[in-house]
Amino acid sequence: MNILLRAENITKQYQKHRALNQVSMNVPAQSIFGLLGPNGAGKTTLIRIINQIIGPDTGTIFIDNEVLKPQHVQQIGYLPEERGLYKKMEVGDQAIYLARLKGIKRHDARILLKKWFERFDLTPWWNKKVEELSKGMQQKVQFIITILHRPKLLIFDEPFSGFDPINVNILKEEILNLKRDGATIIFSTHNMGSVEELCDHIALINKSEKILEGEVNQIKKTFRSRIYEVELESKHAPEKLIPDNRFTTINTKSNNGSHSMQIRIEQDATTNMLLEALLPMGNLMSFKELTPSMNDIFIKKVTGKFPLETNQKNGEPIP
């Protein structure tokens, strides 16, 4: 696997607060990498270090196996969480200005921008002042500026905040296009569900430390809940259905001989064993594993327990 960005033992100390503690991670090329974690975990600090806005106290960042240098800013596109534009400046002029700061020539910038403005239905706004644009349009302009210089590495910090659902979809599609064209994308968000579907790899950061990193499918496998949702039509009472302690019933809902249950398979048992036990009992309507969401995995990582189990303890129904 080709690694585009490698962070090694990054530590950043603010006056009284350690923002990052020995964080290392590998971002594979041509993939979408989710940098996940709650607010204040240190994601933005890490991103600013990658963008060379601030320097780390210790540790090194490599891009394509080269130590990060000032010239690398040309190869990175960054959409910060706190983003805005000059309100009084015309949209087109402003886009050209920001493109030139990324090293694109004025003439080229204009041609590229016209194309993108067309694509995002922004052309009529070229000569308007930014303050006349809606928030969503401003976000589109910012997005265009971020990707205009065709960077190898794109970093989006909370990209979907402020977008309406339609624009979120447009944006997701564009991001997938960029990946197809060979870009590597880092997503940072505290809303773990929102990017789960997009990400190939993720790293979880909590309280300045990386607590988990890997391929999304792999992680999900590791964090299998081993809980199955079963629907069964049976004349037996639900308690009678599960014969032995290889399985634990977590939750049961019964309605006229139709039982909906959540069953956890304990260590030495397998799915087949559960099926074998269930099949003679009645008519099996559905059988599927409850896959944990990134959110669940995160909570499991931090608290040591899946939210499902927590819920059970409190005696509340599982959502």
Binding site: Q52, I53, V73, Y78, P80, L85, K87, L101, I145
Partner: peptide, 13 residues
């Protein structure tokens, strides 16, 4: 206007 972080990702402060 929060444009500053966009700019300092391209140029030094």
């Amino acid at each position: 206007s929060r444009i500053v972080e966009i700019i300092v990702s391209s140029v030094k402060p």
